Amino acid sequence: MYFLTEKPDKAYLVAAEVSGNCVSHKYAYSFIDDGIKVQAIIIDACLRVGVRPILFPGSTCIYPKLAQRPIEVYEQALGLCGDCQWQAVQEA
C-alpha cells in the first residue's frame, strides 16, 4: 500500500530481519524464510509501481575475511564462521 500511495522514486532494501548470532543460528529456517519473504514483497511492490532503482546491499559481516574481491555469490558461504552462515544464505 505504501508504494501505491507514496510512489517513491527509489527504494533501499537494507534489512529484512535483524538478529543476534545466537538467534540466526538457533532459528535458521525462520530467519531465512522471513527474510526472503520480506525481500520478495518489497521487490515485487517496487516492480509493480515502477520504483527504480532498488538498492539491495549485503552486510559486510557475511563476507569471508580473506576472500578475493569481487566475491561470487556462491562463495559467500565458504569459509564463514558459523555465526554468519545463515545471514549469508539469506542474502545470497
Rank of each mutant, 00 (worst) to 15 (best):
21 N>W: 15
63 Y>T: 04
50 G>S: 08
63 Y>C: 04
21 N>C: 10
17 E>W: 04
85 Q>W: 10
76 Q>E: 10
14 V>R: 01
10 K>T: 06
7 K>F: 03
8 P>S: 03
85 Q>T: 07
7 K>H: 05
15 A>C: 12
88 A>I: 04
14 V>Q: 00
66 L>M: 06
50 G>L: 08
42 I>W: 05
13 L>M: 03
65 K>V: 13
29 Y>A: 14
73 V>A: 15
44 D>R: 01
25 H>N: 14
85 Q>G: 06
82 G>E: 10
37 K>P: 01
88 A>Q: 02
33 D>V: 13
67 A>K: 06
44 D>S: 06
3 F>A: 07
59 S>C: 07
75 E>H: 09
90 Q>T: 13
16 A>P: 02
43 I>S: 05
27 Y>I: 05
74 Y>D: 15
30 S>E: 15
15 A>L: 07
90 Q>E: 13
83 D>W: 02
69 R>F: 06
43 I>Q: 08
89 V>C: 11
28 A>C: 13
29 Y>M: 11
63 Y>S: 01
38 V>H: 12
1 M>A: 15
23 V>N: 07
90 Q>G: 08
76 Q>Y: 07
87 Q>G: 13
88 A>Y: 01
10 K>A: 13
60 T>S: 07
11 A>M: 03
92 A>S: 13
33 D>Y: 10
91 E>A: 02
36 I>P: 00
83 D>S: 08
69 R>W: 11
77 A>W: 08
70 P>G: 07
65 K>W: 09
26 K>V: 11
61 C>V: 12
18 V>T: 11
70 P>N: 08
90 Q>H: 09
40 A>S: 11
11 A>I: 00
43 I>A: 12
51 V>N: 02
67 A>W: 05
68 Q>E: 15
62 I>S: 01
87 Q>Y: 10
27 Y>T: 03
